[in-house]
């Protein structure tokens, strides 16, 4: 893959070191079959090179004994793998329906104006890359933004502008229910399976996650005690089990729409 004009992967500017090769092999060795390591290996390539480079693709292919085309095929399938350099802070604004309706669309518009970049572009100082993202599983905190894949909950256009200004000024920023933000490359290293020291930072949960459990505490509501449940359940369980077995055989006979089909 040469780089005359814009190529799918721009030219690498760094050499992968022996240490990186060793770590790539270490990832492959975690699995019964080495190729299972390819996704985390590509995360590691990004942490070292700031994007997926031809050199990184070559390294993965060599180690796994597959063709560079096969690695490219995987790298181009997943949205977290980037073909152009990503800034120190990847800023994602959820514009899937619920967040969009709750204000995500307005936030995204404001940030494009403020940063003077379009979707999937990086500010000239290399600090911030802006992208609109799909549902990030935090709908009870809508509208949601992610910075380097850390939650920034309950945003407004104004808070979003303050956030990116802080990032560009180099101020320390914390996730609203997580740790101090690291750089995008450092985040990619954790995703490759090399933990940093921040697991203990931040709270257990954000306020919305605790909404139900706090009402239960106030009201004195709990799951039944084992004793209270025994007498009632004995009379009911046998019936229920038979029914679910019937259902199960019906379903297995037709087509198993994977239990986890849509999680």
């Amino acid at each position: 893959m040469t780089t005359t004009g814009p190529s799918r992967f721009s030219e690498n500017d760094q050499q992968l070191t022996d240490a990186t090769y060793d770590e790539l092999r270490e990832i492959a060795a975690r699995y019964p079959q080495g190729r299972s390591g390819l996704l985390p290996m590509l995360h590691l390539v990004q942490s070292v090179e700031g994007k997926v480079t031809p050199e990184g693709i070559q390294a993965c292919a060599e180690i796994l004994d597959i063709s560079p085309a096969e690695v490219s095929g995987v790298a181009t399938f997943y949205t977290m793998y980037k073909r152009r350099p990503v800034g120190d802070y990847h800023v994602g604004v959820c514009t899937n329906t619920l967040c969009a309706v709750m204000g995500g669309d307005l936030i995204f518009e404001r940030l494009k104006e403020h940063l003077e970049v379009g979707n999937d572009e990086t500010t000239p100082d290399g600090k911030v890359s802006l992208e609109h993202i799909e549902c990030n599983a935090a709908c009870d905190f809508a509208p949601v933004m992610m910075v380097n894949w850390e939650f920034m909950d309950n945003q407004t256009p104004e808070s979003a502008v303050r956030l990116v200004d802080d990032l560009r000024a180099g101020n320390e920023v914390h996730s609203t229910r997580g740790p101090r933000l690291c750089t995008w490359r450092e985040a990619e290293r954790v995703l490759a399976g090399f933990p940093d020291d921040r697991a203990d930072e931040g709270p257990s949960a954000g306020p919305a996650s605790l909404a139900g459990v706090q009402i239960a505490r106030t009201m004195g509501w709990t799951a039944p005690s084992v004793e209270a449940s025994t007498s009632r359940a004995e009379s009911e369980t046998s019936v229920a089990t038979e029914t679910s077995e019937e259902r199960a055989s019906d379903r297995a006979a037709s087509s198993d729409q994977a239990e986890e089909g849509k999680s």
Binding site: A199, S204, G212, V213, Q214, A216, M219, W221, P224
Partner: peptide, 18 residues
């Protein structure tokens, strides 16, 4: 049975629950 029955969520608010 109570209206809410925290089992999986019961410990989410506790100190260093992770």
């Amino acid at each position: 049975t109570d209206m809410l029955t925290p089992v999986l969520t019961a410990n989410w608010g506790t100190d260093r629950s992770w």
